[in-house]
Design a protein around this nucleic acid. Sequence first.
DNA 1: CGATTTTGACCTGCGC
DNA 2: GCGCAGGTCAAAATCG
Length: 402
Amino acid sequence: MNTLVRISGASTYHIHVQIAEGRPEEKIQEAVGSVVPRQFMELGPSATTETDDQPSNTTSSEERTHSGSPHNHKNEMVPFVHHQDNKAKGIGREESPESEGWVPNKAPKLSNGSSKTSIDQATTEATMRKARVSVRARSEAPMITDGCQWRKYGQKMAKGNPCPRAYYRCTMAVGCPVRKQVQRCAEDRTILITTYEGTHNHPLPPAAMAMASTTSAAASMLLSGSMSSADGLMNPNFLARTILPCSSSMATISASAPFPTVTLDLTQNPNPLQFQRSVAPSQFQNPFQTPPQVPHAFAQTLYNQSKFSGLHVSQHLEAHQVPPPQLHHQQPQPSFADTLSAATAAITADPSFTAALAAAISSIMGGNAQPNSNNATNNTASTTTTNTTTSNGNKIGGFPGN
DNA sequence: CGATTTTGACCTGCGC
DNA sequence: GCGCAGGTCAAAATCG
């Protein structure tokens, strides 16, 4: 039973969000970012803080992966996720077990022997434990540029899919727990599915922040929703709509259980009209004033990415390109960079979006959302904060990338 | 020389 | 209990 919510697309693209329970892979194609209860690393904060902390591009090779802010040529997407559990394997690699260290994610059994208390927590966490955010986009490039640096640590053939699945770890920071899986859709190999898991424990470049914000918001939403759904308290569709009134097909939330997943499907053609229609609902007005922007921004970002990555976005994104949100001041000339920034800014800066999301969910759920909220909220909050900063600043422009 | 990618093996979780 | 599949590790190879 996965509940699916679909939000349709706004102007440019459609997002598919789905939450699934159980193994993500099977049910979902890929989920992406997960949000964890814990609060620690929200990407937001970190990201926010500094604007740029870009990684020093140190990595050379990763460039490819690294969407690098500076260049933004590629696609940018940044997810964030909290990771949580650690697998057992003994990996203790790097550092501190707890914090940031990258942790393996398989959700092991929660209880590994922990105390009862922990169990309790575990339970809670477990629930949300593996929220993931997946982004589906058409791209010929092997990977979407999301503003972060990634290191490939494995590749495996997934069952049912002739295309191998690649596993990447964020290398922008030593202990960053964020991981992502990249795989092409078996049905349509032009579609690249990127699943993010975990939350960055370090500042992110604007470009990355955008993605992170988006994903985190989605994840937050997802988690909240998923729990509710699980409880039967809420209707996923409702949630989806609420969240992204404008898009009916853009986002799919599947809350199945252990690993709720939010899938942003950018592979579909944007439908402005639809968007317009959807947008409006007065009910959602407040919170979602921005949604439209978000989608747009996102779409653009992807679009850009596509261009750079060689992916062909569905058609007319360009045509639709909408000016960046008001939040973001754009420069007179919408260059790619600008566009990108705008997109980034829009997303990132859209506190309203995330906040709205959170608020909406909360209200909808009647507070149920709260539970996770810590995480979610935090994330959201963080995001928001970040966004705020960013957005206000509109400074995103300052972002080197431009 | 250092960092990253590749690839096979290993471990864990889940279903039968 | 067994087998399957997913995910991760780590050694070797490759690249800048």
